[in-house]
Computed example of a mutant assay.
Amino acid sequence: MKTCLVSLVSDQTIPNILVALHFRPDFLLFFSTKKMEEKVKTKAILDTLLMRGLDYTSNYHVFQVNENSLLDLQQQFIDWTAKTGDAYNYIVNLTCGNKLMSLSAYDLFKEYEATMVYVPIPRNEFLIPFPKHRPKEPTLLKERLSVEEYLTAYGFSINNKSKTIKNFQKAKERRKITEFIINRYEVLQELFYTFIQDLRELIKKFPKNGYAYSLGKTLKNDSEREMLKLFGFGYENGKFIKNLDKSECRFLCGGWLEEYVYIAVEEALGIKGNVMIGVEAIDRKGNKNEFDVIFTYENSLNLIECKSLDPDEGSEFKVGIIDFYYKLGALRRNFGLTPNAYLATTSKEVYDQTGNIKPHLIERGKQFNITLVPYDKLKNIKEFLSKT
């Protein structure tokens, strides 16, 4: 007899996807609601499974039920089976949906001797809690989702995949430079503030043929000279010059920090995770969301926002962190997406007079599940991330 997996649809799509990938059933039944279908949650689940080669286009059915009724879910299923005459071995994922939907599904499918499973989020395993006096040992969920699969599961699509590959390649090529910068940033920061002041506005309307940049600043130390040499600057008529492309311009205006963090995270994860840099994701309404560094690890989503700002622009830093809070709030409110989040910054504005991170930033971060990664932690970010 064929197998049918029954899933209760809610904002949290990952448990339904992981269980489907584990059992790979013949047919999918979804008990959803009007609100969840307006959010296209079922479609997001199906799209993610399709990315793994599981095409259920002709092998699924959605019941749109009254989430506050025990009987509606059951009656719709009974009417459907009477009409189709289909018979299956049922597996019921009780993880998602609200409590009434779970109770109704359990009450209904126990009569069909269904296997009931439950995923204790965020663990990558499922339980078979019944019969309650003889529960089985947890079963591991071995599948791990990539960044693109995770975003697809929440209704996003990546619209700059080819660019992210180029971002990755550039980060690899410039690794030596980013490591040089992070290890000498305290004596290089004045040089980078000059880059920001000279080039920041240029990025918005960057010339197609590049920009002939001439650095008028008087260098103050050997590290600044070494940095310019590593980046390929020439010297002519008393000025350091280089024809910059847009990627190089972004790098000098703070993109170096994104590349440094990306390489560090990739090496920390190894084959256990997936990481991308400079991702532009479009939501179902066409809104664009930009992520500096984004990675999955053990089926959790993690965002790292990178801020390299002027120390005398405390207000700009505050705007940056508030923007990041707003971004996370919107993701949670609109999509049920609850990533682990980090704010990596070289700004000294995060410290108080005693050299500790300002308490109000720590407390505000806790409210949004954001961990602040200041400069003194950035140099050992691989170790820092392994402890968080």
Rank of each mutant, 00 (worst) to 15 (best):
G238T: 00
M1A: 08
G314D: 04
Q64V: 15
I182Y: 00
F291H: 10
L151A: 01
I128T: 15
E363W: 08
K39G: 03
S102F: 05
F126Y: 15
D222P: 11
L331V: 07
T81L: 02
F195E: 01
E201W: 06
K136R: 13
Q367N: 13
K272P: 00
T33C: 09
F251W: 04
E267I: 03
V6G: 00
E201R: 13
M227E: 10
A114N: 11
E363M: 09
N209L: 04
Q74V: 07
M276H: 07
E267A: 11
K382S: 13
L331K: 02
D222A: 14
I165V: 13
L103D: 11
Y211G: 03
T57E: 04
V147I: 03
R333P: 04
F31K: 09
L100A: 05
I304R: 02
L228W: 02
I277G: 02
S223D: 15
L361N: 04
L49R: 05
D323Y: 04
Y112F: 14
P25L: 10
Y326T: 15
K110V: 14
I322R: 06
K220A: 05
F23N: 06
F168G: 02
G273D: 06
N274Y: 06
E148K: 14
N183K: 11
S32T: 12
K99N: 14
D79R: 08
Y342S: 06
G53M: 02
I121H: 07
D245I: 08
I381H: 04
K358I: 14
M276F: 12
F233C: 10
K285F: 15
F368I: 00
A153K: 08
K41S: 03
E37Q: 08
D26V: 06
V265I: 15
I263C: 00
T42W: 03
M227A: 15
V350F: 05
D312T: 12
I294D: 04
K205F: 08
Y375T: 07
M101F: 05
L141V: 11
E349C: 07
L337T: 08
D86N: 05
T33K: 08
F295M: 14
C4Y: 03
L202T: 15
E201C: 03
K176G: 13
L140W: 12
T164L: 04
L188C: 08
F384E: 09
E125T: 12
F206E: 05
N124W: 04
K132H: 13
K246L: 11
L145W: 09
